[in-house]
C-alpha cells in the first residue's frame, strides 16, 4: 500500500512542479492559465492521498474550476486571448523552408 502510494505521490509531485515551472516559462497566456489549472488539479489529488477529502473537493471545484474561469474571462477582457492558430504554424514552416533553402 505504501509502496504504490509512494509512486503515485512521486508522479503527482513531479507533475505539479513541472506544471508550475511551465506557468512561468510558457509564452501563450492561455497555456499559462491551463498550466495553473493543472497545478490545482494535481494538488487536489495529493490532498486525497493525504486524507483530506474535503480540502480536495474544494480545491478541485474552486481552485481548478472557478479560478481558471475567472482567469480565462480576465484574459478575454485584457485582450490577451490569442490562440496560436494556423498562421504561426504556416510562418514557422515557411521560415524553416526558407532557412533550408538559404543553407
Amino acid at each position: 500500500m505504501t509502496e504504490i502510494e509512494l509512486w503515485i505521490v512521486m508522479l503527482l509531485a513531479l507533475m505539479v512542479l513541472s506544471a508550475a515551472v511551465m506557468v512561468l516559462l510558457v509564452k501563450n497566456h492561455i497555456a499559462a492559465v491551463a498550466a495553473a489549472s493543472v497545478v490545482s488539479l494535481g494538488l487536489a489529488l495529493l490532498f486525497v492521498l493525504m486524507r483530506a477529502p474535503d480540502v480536495a473537493m474544494t480545491e478541485a471545484a474552486v481552485g481548478a474550476g472557478l479560478s481558471s474561469l475567472i482567469l480565462a474571462l480576465a484574459l478575454r477582457r485584457l485582450g490577451l486571448w490569442r490562440v496560436d492558430g494556423v498562421k504561426t504554424q504556416v510562418n514557422l514552416i515557411k521560415a524553416n523552408g526558407e532557412g533550408h533553402q538559404d543553407a
Binding site: 506557468v23 512561468l24 497566456h29 499559462a32 495529493l46 481552485g63
Partner: peptide, 16 residues
Amino acid sequence: FRMVLALVIAEAGANL
C-alpha cells in the same frame, strides 16, 4: 498577468 499566476502558485504551495 504572469505575476498574478505566480501568486496563485505560491498560495497553492502554502496550502499544501
